[in-house]
Simulated scan of single mutants.
Amino acid sequence: IFLLYVGLPGPPEQNSWFWGDPNVTVLAGLTPGNSPIFYREVLPLNPAHRVEVVLLHGKAFNSHTWEQLGTLQLLSQRGYRAVALDLPGDDSPTSASQVVGITGAHHHAQLIFDLEVQNAVLVSPSLSGHYALPFLMRGHHQLHGFVPIAPTSTQNYTQEQFWAVKTPTLILYGELDHILARESLRHLRHLPNHSVVKLRNAGHACYLHKPQDFHLVLLAFLDHLL
C-alpha cells in the first residue's frame, strides 16, 4: 500500500539534471509498472554507513524541501546515502497538493523500493503517513528504522498491529502541535521498540521550525542503528 521502491531494478527510463545544490541529483523515471517517479538523491561524500535514508514529505511540501533544509547534504556529509521522494499526485507526480485522494493503493503495494535502497530508514512527516504506515505494517522487516513526524492515518491500525512491528522507531513531534502530534503519538506509543523526542517551541512541521535540533536528533538515531 505504499510505493517505497526498495530492492527492485532501477527505472528503465531515467534522466537526471542538477537544480539548486550541485551535489543533489534530481531524477525522473518510470518504475517497471510504468508509474512515474521523481526524487532527489545525494550519495555519501565518504561512504561510512550501510544505512540509507528515505525522506517523504507532507501535503504542502515536496522533495525539494529536504534540499532547501540542508538535510540531504548533511546526511551525505555524515556518510549516509539520502533519497527524497516526491509523492504521487492525481495530475502531476511532483504535486504534493494532489496527494489526498489518490487511488490505486493496491497497485502501489506491488512497488517496494525501485531505487535499490538497502537497510532503509524511512522518515515520514504528516500526510506521508498515509503511505508509510501501510508499508510499515506489511513490510516492516524491510526497514532498518522508522522516523514518524506526526503522521496521519495512525488511527487506522489497532494496538495489536503496532505491537507486531519490531522496527526501531524515533517518534518526533513539535511541542506546539496540539492536534495531529497528540493523536499520532497516542497510537505510535504501541510500537514496542520506540523512543520519543519533543522539539521545543516547534509546530507541526517541527523539522522546519527547529532544523538544527531536528538534524541532531535524526543523526543520533541513525548513528545508534549502526
Rank of each mutant, 00 (worst) to 15 (best):
T25H: 11
G58D: 05
A109Y: 03
Q14Y: 03
S76T: 07
R182E: 14
T152S: 14
V100S: 04
R189N: 00
P93T: 01
E52A: 05
H141D: 10
A109P: 02
A205T: 13
D177S: 08
A105S: 10
S95W: 02
R138Q: 14
H215D: 10
E116F: 01
R182D: 12
L225D: 03
L176I: 04
G70I: 10
H144M: 10
R81A: 01
Q159L: 09
I171L: 06
L219P: 03
A105F: 15
L176Y: 08
T154H: 05
F113H: 10
L27E: 13
G33F: 10
A28H: 14
R189Y: 00
V121Q: 04
D86I: 03
H224W: 13
G10F: 15
V99I: 09
T65R: 08
L216I: 12
Q98I: 03
A220R: 14
N62S: 11
E160D: 11
H141M: 05
R138K: 12
L8E: 13
L30A: 08
A132N: 05
L218N: 08
L111I: 15
F162S: 02
P22F: 04
L216H: 13
Y131Q: 07
G203K: 00
T65K: 07
T65D: 09
A120R: 08
V123I: 10
L143F: 09
S124N: 14
G145T: 01
N156R: 12
K59I: 01
A181R: 08
M137V: 12
H224G: 14
L191G: 01
Q212A: 12
A220F: 02
A164L: 06
L45G: 03
Y80F: 11
R186Q: 15
I149M: 11
E160T: 13
D213M: 05
A84W: 04
I179S: 14
L3P: 04
T154P: 09
H224D: 15
D114S: 13
E52H: 08
N62Y: 01
Y157E: 05
D177R: 11
F146R: 06
Q159V: 11
P12R: 15
R78Y: 05
Q14M: 08
W163P: 00
P11M: 01
Y5R: 06
D86F: 04
H140L: 02
L56R: 04
H209Q: 14
L219D: 06
V26D: 09
L74M: 07
E41M: 02
L218T: 10
P125F: 07
H64D: 12
P168R: 03
S16P: 00
S76V: 08
L225W: 01
Y157I: 09
R138S: 13
N23P: 00
V6L: 13
G10S: 15
H108S: 10
Q159P: 00
E160A: 12
P9E: 14
R186H: 15
G7I: 10
V24G: 00
L188M: 10
G174N: 02
A96D: 04
A105H: 14
W163H: 15
Q161M: 13
S63L: 07
F162E: 03
N156Q: 14
Y39A: 01
K59H: 05
Q73E: 13
V100K: 11
G20W: 04
V6E: 08
K166P: 00
L172T: 00
H49N: 05
P134G: 06
R200I: 06
K59P: 00
P36W: 02
V51S: 01
A109C: 04
D177I: 07
I179W: 06
Q155A: 11
S184N: 04
S76M: 07
P36M: 04
